[in-house]
Design a protein around this nucleic acid. Structure first.
Lengths: 232, 232
DNA sequence: AACCTCTGTTGACAGCTGTCAACATCTTGC
DNA sequence: GCAAGATGTTGACAGCTGTCAACAGAGGTT
């Protein structure tokens, strides 16, 4: 069994971050190992699932094997949405993960919380489309780091000052498939960021952000979008 | 006023293609001119809208002006979804369009038909992410043509054999912003397809598919995805 | 009709990113 | 502990696509 990134004690106390409740008072969540495929694109399933803890990615394949990771899910996110009863995407764990089934997908279809989740997902997907279509390699990798840091930074739940250190659940290949790049380009960007003092990592998956502001700037994020006047 | 693509008679009989009903028995739809911005990303609105006829695109902007068209909407599609009360995307008409408000967005949030529309939209967004991240320029342009042909080919509603001729509502720049390319690359691909006998166009926006199968192949579509058995 | 602007096309060229290859490092299994 | 495979890094090189520029054509205005 590969390394896990949380302890037995953490697994024993699944956090509740979402307002979505299943009809049954007690829901049996299950622990799934790393690199386990939960759902296949085009397959059938009649339940939604929530990621309670861990990391799950959604992906699609082209005929010749090219892969696109369409979403990276952390704690609280839902997956298993279907169109015409068919799974939209393949779902795989990138870590040991706690998964909670939410019951019949169609029964839950009119749950306002589900609609809210769908709209939030849509929002993320659109932002990612902008990344894929209009950002450079450096901006893509920087954006990914910012987003993953936000996703998996909750290690410091106990009120401790959240150090900008987090576990990169994705391999370089996963990052490449998420960002529309190649492993080589991802590796080059990460190591350039490291040389420039933006981030640091000794182990390839143990990331630490050293200069959050410069990383944000590299990501092409507009911290000012709210404050700034629109340009001429 | 620029050219319109439907007649007064067609406008007088708005087709009902969706099962989504508004609470009021009579809904007042409105006609909007070409190149009209209906909603701004980040702005507030408290209604969903349906495209009854015409073409609407959703887009996002980066700070330096780079634009990504995240979705192209034809008849029947909904837009105006919000997260935290804020519009997810900017919505613009690319043609004279008939738009129908669907009432309070939050009131409709638990409508099963809305959830279905959201899931269908999610599906399209994921497919487009795969296009943006993993397809070549030729595959992107071919995919766009196939999709737009399907979207705007309903000209032949009267049972006539649907000729594979359709109106491209998007400019070359719009196509580029949708596909993550430049106008020059889009233009080169379209004219190459023309030289190769895949498509034809005299007017830049009057497209005609001459060889649907070869176009599908160029788009990298898997015609088997539906027939295929789900994998283990 | 003439003019102007926007859109589209085409060519030359460059550069970002992909491809190929070799090697290093980490992980896993024996 | 060692071997073998998977993952990550780095360099050389190439090519797809972007950039820049000039021009053509269409649409709209006076």
């Amino acid at each position: 069994m590969p390394e896990t990134q949380f302890t037995a004690a953490q697994l024993a106390v699944p956090p509740r971050t979402s307002s979505i409740r299943s009809p049954r008072p007690v829901v049996r969540s299950r622990i799934v190992g790393e690199n386990h495929t939960l759902l296949y694109e085009g397959g059938r399933n009649r339940s939604l699932y929530r990621v309670v803890d861990g990391c799950v990615v959604l992906s699609q394949l082209l005929d010749d094997g090219r892969r696109q990771i369409t979403d990276v899910l952390g704690p609280g996110r839902l997956f298993g949405f279907t169109v015409d009863g068919r799974n939209i995407a393949t779902a795989e764990t990138l870590s040991v993960a706690r998964i909670e089934p939410l019951g019949d997908a169609d029964l839950n279809a009119d749950d306002p919380a589900i609609a809210r989740e769908l709209k939030a997902t849509l929002h993320r997907m659109q932002a990612h489309a902008t990344l894929l279509g209009r950002k450079t390699a450096s901006e893509k990798v920087a954006s990914a780091l910012v987003e993953l840091a936000r996703l998996f930074n909750r290690a410091a739940r106990n009120g401790a000052p959240a150090r900008l250190s987090f576990h990169l659940h994705l391999t370089r290949a996963d990052l490449a498939d998420w960002l529309g790049l190649t492993v080589e380009t991802v590796s080059r960007c990460l190591n350039r960021f490291k040389r420039e003092g933006l981030i640091d990592f000794s182990h390839p998956k143990t990331m630490r952000v050293l200069d959050p502001e410069r990383l944000d700037a590299t990501a092409g994020f507009s911290r000012q979008r709210a404050n700034d006047a629109a340009r001429p």
